[in-house]
Design a protein around this nucleic acid. Structure first.
Lengths: 108, 108
DNA sequence: TGCCATTTGGTCTAATTTTGTCCAAAAGTA
DNA sequence: TACTTTTGGACAAAATTAGACCAAATGGCA
């Protein structure tokens, strides 16, 4: 298993990918065809990337798409828990709900 | 610790509360001052209750508000994971992010 | 069976949220 | 200083969602 450094946010990770590739916002934005400012905002987590955009980013930087999508999702969940000041245990509850609903779905 | 039956959704729980109280959609909707149809949709998870509404519901049925809010949130998270067909492990990642961000926040 | 209460479900508008763009200001660098 | 890069505010456009209204369906029971 590869040792993968995890980032505290999708944006941070994206910025790291870009900087490691020695690229500027401009060059990347042009190549994935979005506004520089939008890309900058995504890196600062001020805008949320669309699924499609995450896919393009993954392709561009040659990283696993599914992993990026998951990272973005976990971001969203973490953010929601923080702003709602929710109990961290709701994640366990959510997990049970998912298992339950998956079983239920398969039973249909 | 009280034994609490958990429901697979917020709406299901709400419906149970109402039926246990022997009330109809009409009587509850009138008392919390929302449209009958809206309440019905919330029970069927076709509409999302606002925070404010969850508060009113908690007050009305005399249940713990925070618990209801948490139930709604865990619902949202479970739903998102299902529709995105995301790996269940993102919940663990999200948990780590929350811990990390909380620490970070406190350090500011 | 027919009546009335209750619940469902579709459609629509208004409100809210979010995105993406534009541009000027700030920051960094040589 | 001149140039590149990044930031951040403002705003219109797009997308999403809530809430209202009403008709149809369902259910109980006299």
């Amino acid at each position: 298993m590869a040792i993968v450094k995890k980032y505290s946010s999708f944006g941070e990770h994206l910025r790291k990918l870009r900087e490691d590739a020695g690229q500027t916002l401009k060059t990347v934005a042009e190549q994935i065809r979005i506004d520089i400012s939008l890309l900058a905002k995504i890196e600062r987590n001020e805008r949320q990337p669309t699924k499609q955009l995450i896919k393009q980013i993954a392709t561009f930087f040659q990283v696993d798409e599914k992993e990026l999508q998951n990272e973005f999702l976990s971001d969203q969940i973490a953010y929601k828990i923080l702003v709602e000041e929710a109990d961290i245990n709701i994640l366990k509850v959510a997990e049970k709900k998912v298992s339950y609903l998956k079983t239920k779905k398969n039973a249909d």
